[in-house]
Design a protein around this nucleic acid. Structure first.
Lengths: 173, 173
DNA sequence: GCCGTAAAGCTAATATCATTAGCCAAACTC
DNA sequence: GAGTTTGGCTAATGATATTAGCTTTACGGC
């Protein structure tokens, strides 16, 4: 996909028109403008992430599920460097498809937490912790923010191990 | 500052020229272009973050220092919504000032970890964990990614508490 | 006090991108 | 077969970035 090839910030209507072999204004027969394009990409990426997370969780539970879902999330972000940033746009309240995709993605994470006996506010905090940790890691990694030679795969494993410990000790409070 | 008023992505040379009351091309006598402006802003923001983290850590240690530094980081991001994203740009290897600022900011986090008896690869992983968790949280929060009514301050406290637990159990391995 | 230069501004010109308006042909519907 | 929808086009406008080249002003050295 063009977005992944040129990067989210360089995904331009002009580039898209060139790729499709049509004149730039022709695109307006399909999207309302550049913002609508970003919005559509956000919905697509969010839905894909929901799919990927759900598939990774299938047949697993507990720490096993946590590691698999986190790995799947990171893999998606790395394999789709243009789509992934689009998914960070907050769901448009006026777009049911977007809301549903977001809910599905969050639901995949929530399901993992059942294995840690977390619910209510604790579950909300745990979901936010997961999202913050994994998104933050992936974003910093993509931006080249990790300068030291230390293997980032190892660091990611430790990050998820830390989440696992936090969830475990949390459930037993 | 203009960047914080209009947002990082809408920080444009045209807007800056208007703010300064000069014609747009006049800016080229001071910066090489829009990319150089972003770069300068990155250096400024990174240095300011380093200052803020260092100040927050002064006179504290252990979990106390961890909470203070995390709170200071989040406060900076919230108070400077235009500058903060600029700081996510990877340090320019050709810019010693940028490298130094980045090293100072990371050093402030590294100093906290002394209280947890973490060093070597474990310290690197711990720093990455801190950055991922805190950056991820403020990024999602700024993007409006936390839709549920649950108070985000509480969630942030829990996130930092989770980091604290992870570091503690880590030091004792 | 005068001269040369560097600093900092300007206008003009060019290129890219987004957007709107209005026209046209093919395809699809009834 | 007539009418409408679909999807493409050119032309025009406006915002932004960038470069080129001109001008003024302040300042240092003499």
């Amino acid at each position: 996909m063009l977005a992944d090839e040129v990067g989210y910030d360089r995904l331009t209507l002009a580039a898209l028109a060139a790729r499709l072999g049509v004149a730039l204004p022709s695109l307006y027969k399909h999207v309302r403008g550049v913002d609508a394009l970003h919005q559509k990409l956000a919905v697509l990426a969010t839905a894909e992430i929901a799919d990927v997370l759900t598939a990774a969780a299938a047949g697993r539970s507990g720490g096993d599920a946590l590691r698999a879902v986190a790995a799947a999330y990171r893999a998606y972000a790395r394999q789709h460097p243009g789509r992934y940033p689009a998914a960070q746009r907050a769901p448009d309240p006026a777009d049911p498809e977007h809301l549903a995709a977001g809910e599905r993605a969050v639901g995949a994470v929530r399901a993992i937490l059942l294995g840690y006996v977390l619910d209510g506010d604790a579950a909300t905090d745990a979901i936010r912790m997961f999202r913050a940790a994994v998104h933050g890691f992936v974003a910093l990694e993509a931006a080249g923010g990790f300068g030291l030679p230390r293997d980032t795969d190892r660091s990611f494993d430790q990050l998820i191990a830390g989440l696992d410990r936090a969830y475990l000790s949390w459930g037993n409070r």
